[in-house]
Design a protein around this nucleic acid. Structure first.
Lengths: 189, 189
DNA sequence: GACACAGTGTTGGATATTCAACAAACAGTA
DNA sequence: TACTGTTTGTTGAATATCCAACACTGTGTC
């Protein structure tokens, strides 16, 4: 399945990804040149082309990888009980925090709108079943509800990232849960 | 003169040096194996042997390099005026601070006694002339004085390193100067 | 002593990266 | 338009690194 990588390939790809994220923090993808990327990564330009088509290709692969990692990370915590949807959200937030730099750049700085949608889709896929149980809605309504809730949650997480993650993940997850159940709107305790 | 290094050689040597310093922070040089060094640096062991005889050789080269760098660094600030010996000391301390990790390791953790002596010799070479001027002593006495002063200063700097450099370099340099002139001992202001 | 076990230093062939050079595309400008 | 400078994508040959295998040494243990 996955081609086996010796140390050199691993290092080359790792440093190129890392460097592109750093550049994306300051500039948009279209204003970045392959030349400057390679110079900053201290990798020969011709080496770059043996791995990627161009820097857009590299960005795509970074996003793919992140999406897959997040997906398989969430799969490991498939809580079945009711009540556990908060913990699921917390796991999601923890993962985002562990990769704060990359999420913050891809979601806030020079954001790729398509990436935000992919994240939403993945999160929805893993959280929907739980939300359905918790909220006892039929599947038609439930779809709208999860869309509404997840996109709201994503934006809360984006804001939290930009503000240097002042709250711990558990607290943020609890907050999002209360937002999703309308607890804050109706002022229920 | 200096052999030209392509990116690969540069990277290999850099990461090996960095990793050895990290290991030395925890273990003595004799208890470190080439195998573990290479595993932590993610460099093939056979590659190590194309650059260095063994890990003692690597340590020697790290020390050589540091000594040469320090030496040429100090050469750039050859203050001629009296009074300027404090600034010379400050430059020394600033250099140590910029390389705190490596100096702290080599001087405090698993110290190599020979290295401490080399540092002393280099510092003496650059500071002695100034001290002579300042203290108006003849050359025989001056030699003893500088030996006494420099070794005292080195140990003050070691202690300062271990205590996370609470004072700024300028203040430490001033303190060392006062120590060297006996100002603190005689309680002069 | 015999044995297992871990680290050493070396080798040869496979592979990845480097470097320098090239033609081509492009943008800005005199 | 022609000129200038920059980036692009590609190539071939040189070089460095990787990897797996090897024989060897030392160390501890039964």
């Amino acid at each position: 399945m996955s081609e086996k990588l010796d140390r050199r390939k691993k290092y080359t790809r790792m440093i190129l990804k890392e460097t592109l994220i750093e550049l994306l923090y300051k500039k948009s993808i279209s204003s970045i040149t392959v030349k400057e990327l390679c110079e900053q990564a201290d990798i020969n330009r011709s080496t770059f082309y043996t791995h990627y088509q161009d820097h857009y290709d590299l960005l795509n692969k970074i996003e793919d990888e992140l999406a897959n990692d997040l997906s398989s990370y969430l799969q490991r915590y498939n809580f079945s009980e009711q009540e556990e949807s908060v913990k699921m959200t917390q796991k999601l937030v923890e993962y985002v925090q562990e990769n704060q730099k990359i999420f913050n750049t891809l979601l806030n700085h020079n954001a790729d709108p398509a990436f935000e949608k992919r994240m939403s889709d993945i999160a929805r896929q893993f959280l929907m079943s739980n939300w359905e149980k918790v909220n006892h809605t039929n599947s038609a309504q439930s779809s709208y509800l999860s869309t509404f809730t997840i996109s709201g949650a994503i934006h809360v997480i984006k804001e939290w990232l930009e503000n240097d993650q002042k709250e711990p993940p558990s607290e943020l997850a609890e907050l999002i849960y209360r937002l999703s159940t309308g607890a804050l709107y109706t002022q229920e305790k």
